[in-house]
Design a protein around this nucleic acid. Structure first.
Length: 897
DNA sequence: GCTGCCACGTA
DNA sequence: CGTACGTGGCAGCT
């Protein structure tokens, strides 16, 4: 194995660490902030452990002065003063490095980057594998087959390995050309302006077309358009940028590579230093890097930090090497696996649109196995396929993405016994993430770092972290099963969330077909309308330099230049939202406002259409991802793209729905939706006699309710009366106040209050229910849906009024919205069951909260409609009927009703 | 590059 | 000063 050299840009890594935390987060006893020190050392330890380099050096800038500032005095001129809390941290880092016996390098008149470049060159010449850790993009020019840049992320575990391919993927140019791209684009942090209007995309396009900057500049006259003009005007800037961003790789240094070899650390000195800084956990980790070196065992794990009962101690040994050389590894391992569950933990790219897993960690209670999927033997692949398809005790961290990843390799998961993420979500649906490390900490009480969430598991060291991560899944399940039981969520997990995740997997895999021509047509029309509106807006103010999408610039125009009356205040000024603009329009009649509103509307639609176009996969379909663990009420959400917010109201918006069509082999789309689902659930939960009677009457629900409130008959109810009651009813579900109602209906607060009073006097059960929900939630600490889904609302007890009132509204809404979510999930399971049992080819594609969209054949249309109606209206037995409406058509719009 | 804010689409 | 979401552009931070 070749030697490895790790070179670190000290300032840049420390600076990143500094901004990761507020400076007061960690301080030494003397008050000196130590966040940068801590972050830097943490990152260093992580790299030493993961990469196990043979040679290490850290380069620092000496001052801001360098040959670059001599040439261009404004270089880095926009950088503000170094924050006072950062000053003083660099010497501390250097002291620690000294005790770790890691060489610190500086050079008068040069930047740290130049030292990195010089050492990288020397390392390459010596045949080393070179790793350059830096947060400065200039270092990308060093990347080649021998040199990788380690690009720090938010956490130490987020380090990205910038290989030539990674740079190419990100910027569409190979590394040697990156500085040319940077010269064109400019670098704001170095105060190097580029060509205005030219971003990375344009720059890459040019460079690829002209095969490099030199040739591009030679043909600069050929480039048309505004950008070409801009380029010609800024040639000097580009040339200057290129001169300045070229790293010097022959800086004279006083050291030889051999001086950088790792040496045993000064343990006593380090302990003293760390104690004085109050670094307790880091101390152990830094000392452990020493052991790694001495034991000379690349697969050795460092000692766990936590002293006792550490998770690592409970985790089984890793049974096999990663490199799956033995064709029978899996079969042998499987024999020793009990029936208590197999944890399945794939590593690699789990992005559902292009999953690519390279490694698979499996674990039982006894042992773990890490398999390199890139060189798995045929026999093992077969065994694996069997395990995935037939075992009924598979435990996943998150099954749905894993299933997509397996599916991309032709592997089918037959059933899922447990899903850690889903369980954690049910335990606390308000959490914003369910990272494995965090769950281990929360449910097993241990701090661990498995790192390879990103799939960047490293081949050279820490081989068994993947195995340990897999093994931790079984321990987590042990911890989560009683937690679910305690929260009454076991049935929810087994009968609803796990089964629905399988349905969602199928829906995502199916996708929905898109008519490319329709989409294109819409784009063109919208482009035209956007331009027209823009021209009209510009004409109205005789100025075409305004960015109509910039609220800030709009404020200047509206309230400055045009001196219009001020609108509602926002944090950063005055609102320019549609409602306010309409109001201004009514008051001033200024043509700019009409044009602006038109522009807003159409540009937003264009964005939506563009997003959809980008999302069409090779199969001509859009495969959204349904998120099952983000909405705290139990609803699903849809991302990349969001197909749950496709416009449905305006004509222009509805045209977008025309682009959603049945795919090959199908004849129509069918939409099925629940009518007034939330109101019906409110009727059921509140058991309000009048409301239930209103639903049972078969009359229009809002007219029927309005008749009661206004003491007339349903057919005598006026339009405005009905609207008021409708707004009131829906508002209640959200915790609407009299103030909000008055605002919504544009009526005085007093009138709104009176309306609410009468409403509640007619629907006393509703009032009692809503009051009771909040009271009960305060007592229990949570609300509950019809299916027992809980939402915990600790803020109900907050002393801060705003937080408390927000929690109260959430408490009002959660049982209703959440029960509706339960209901349609149950319905989806029933629909899938019926369609598959009857061997129908028609299938569910989308869920939009109270609506399902199906792809249906002509022959099956009638039976599908019957089955889906039954399944949906019978999903739960409520004390009001569940009304379902069905529509079919040649596209989503036509299928609506 | 990341983050907060604004704006706006859906149920 | 009405719930639940996701996305995109701008602007400010580095």
């Amino acid at each position: 194995m070749s030697n490895k050299l790790l070179i670190i840009d000290g300032h840049s890594v420390a600076f990143r660490a500094f901004y990761a935390l507020p400076p007061e987060a960690m301080t030494a006893p003397d008050g000196q902030s130590t966040t940068a020190v801590h972050g830097f050392i943490n990152m260093l330890v992580k790299m030493l452990k993961d990469e196990n380099p043979d040679y290490v050096a850290v380069a620092f800038d000496l001052s801001r002065q360098s040959f670059r500032t001599a040439e261009y005095p404004d270089y880095k001129g926009t950088r503000s003063e170094t924050p006072p809390e950062f000053i003083g941290q660099v010497p501390l880092i250097q002291q620690i490095l000294k005790q770790m016996r890691i060489m610190v390098l500086t050079k008068e008149n040069y930047e740290a980057d130049d030292i990195l470049a010089t050492l990288a060159r020397r390392g390459k010449e010596a045949g080393f594998e070179v790793l350059v850790a830096s947060g400065d993009r200039d270092t990308f020019q060093l990347v080649d087959s021998q040199v990788t840049v380690l690009w720090p992320g938010q956490k130490p575990s987020d380090v990205r390995h910038m290989t030539p391919q990674a740079v190419k993927d990100k910027y569409d140019v190979y590394p040697q050309r990156y500085p040319e791209l940077a010269a064109l684009v400019g670098e704001a942090s170095d105060n190097l302006p580029g060509v205005p209007g030219v971003g990375p995309k344009t720059a890459a396009q040019w460079l690829n077309k002209y095969d490099g900057l030199d040739n591009l500049l030679a043909h600069v006259e050929e480039i048309g358009g505004k950008r070409g003009e801009a380029l010609r005007e800024h040639l000097d800037d580009v040339k200057r940028n290129r001169r300045l961003n070229r790293l010097v790789n022959d800086v004279e240094l006083e050291v030889e590579l051999s001086d950088l070899a790792r040496k045993p650390i000064n343990r006593a000195g380090l302990i003293e230093l760390f104690d004085s800084l109050r670094f307790t956990t880091l101390r152990g980790r830094v000392l452990a890097t020493d052991k790694q070196l001495q034991s000379d065992d690349t697969f050795a794990e460092e000692e766990p930090i936590a002293p006792e009962g550490d998770v690592a101690a409970q985790l089984p040994e890793v049974a096999s090497a990663r490199f799956d050389n033995d064709p029978k590894t899996l079969a042998t391992w499987l024999k020793s696996a009990g029936t208590d569950g197999i944890a399945v933990y794939p590593l690699g790219d789990l992005n559902p649109s292009h999953p690519d897993i390279h490694t698979l960690a499996l674990a039982t209670r006894e042992n773990a196995l890490v398999i390199d999927l890139t060189e798995i033997s045929e026999r093992n692949e077969k065994t694996l396929a069997n395990i995935l398809r037939h075992r009924d005790d598979l435990v996943f961290y998150h099954a749905k993405p894993a299933m997509h990843a397996f599916s991309a390799r032709g592997l089918v998961v037959g059933s899922v016994a447990f899903d850690i993420v889903l369980a954690a979500y049910l335990c606390n649906p308000d959490a914003r993430s369910y990272e494995l490390e965090d769950l281990v900490e929360r449910f097993l009480g241990q701090v661990v770092e498995f790192a390879p969430e990103s799939g960047m598991i490293d081949l050279s060291g820490g081989l068994d972290t993947a195995g340990r991560a897999a093994a931790s899944l079984l321990l987590l399940r042990d911890a989560l099963v009683p937690e679910l039981e305690k929260r009454g969520a076991t049935k929810l997990m087994n009968k609803l969330e796990i089964p629905i995740s399988q349905v969602l997997f199928d829906m995502e895999a199916r996708g929905i077909a898109i008519s490319a021509p329709t989409l294109q047509e819409i784009t063109q029309d919208l482009d035209h309308l956007v331009n027209e509106a823009q021209q009209a807006a510009f004409a109205a103010i005789e100025d075409d330099t305004v960015n109509l999408s910039s609220p800030k610039q709009l404020q200047e125009i509206l309230f400055g230049r045009l001196d219009m009356p001020k609108t509602r205040k926002t944090k950063t000024g005055y609102t320019t939202n549609a409602e306010a603009l309409k109001d201004l329009h009514a008051r001033t009649g200024h043509p700019f406002l009409g044009a602006l509103l038109e522009h807003r509307d159409k540009i937003k639609l264009r964005q939506t259409v563009e997003g959809l176009s980008r999302a069409v996969a090779e199969d001509g379909r859009i495969h959204t991802t349904f998120q099952q663990t983000v909405a705290a009420t139990g609803r699903l959400s849809s991302t990349e793209p969001n197909l749950q917010n496709i416009p449905a109201r305006t004509e222009a918006g509805l045209r977008i729905r025309e682009a959603f069509v049945p795919g090959a082999g199908y004849d129509m789309l069918m939409t099925v939706d629940y009518s007034q689902i939330e109101m019906r659930i409110m009727a059921h939960l509140s058991d309000d006699k009048e409301l239930i009677a209103a639903f049972n009457s078969g009359e229009d629900i809002h007219s029927s309710m309005a008749a009661l409130v206004f003491q007339t008959t349903p057919d005598q109810v006026s339009g405005p009366q009905r609207s008021k009651i409708k707004a009131m009813s829906y508002g209640l579900v959200y915790g609407l106040s009299a103030f909000g109602l008055s605002n919504q209906l544009n009526i005085p607060v007093g009138e709104a209050k009176d309306l609410m009073k009468v409403y509640f006097s007619r629907f006393g059960g509703v009032k009692a229910y809503l009051d009771g929900v909040v009271e009960q939630a305060r007592l229990d600490g949570y609300t509950e849906t019809l299916f027992g889904r809980r939402r915990y609302l600790p803020d109900l007890m907050s002393n801060q009024r705003q937080l408390r009132e927000m929690a109260e509204r959430a408490a009002l809404n959660a049982p209703i919205q959440g029960s509706a979510a339960d209901l349609i999930k149950l319905a989806m399971l029933e629909v899938e069951k019926r369609l598959s049992e009857m061997g129908l080819s028609s299938r569910v594609l989308l869920q939009v909260h109270d609506e399902l969209v199906l792809e249906v054949t002509d022959e099956e249309a009638a039976v599908v409609e019957t089955q889906v109606r039954e399944a949906m209206s019978g999903a739960m037995q409520l004390n009001v009927p569940l009304e379902v409406s069905v529509g079919t058509g040649a596209n989503w719009r036509a299928a609506a009703h």
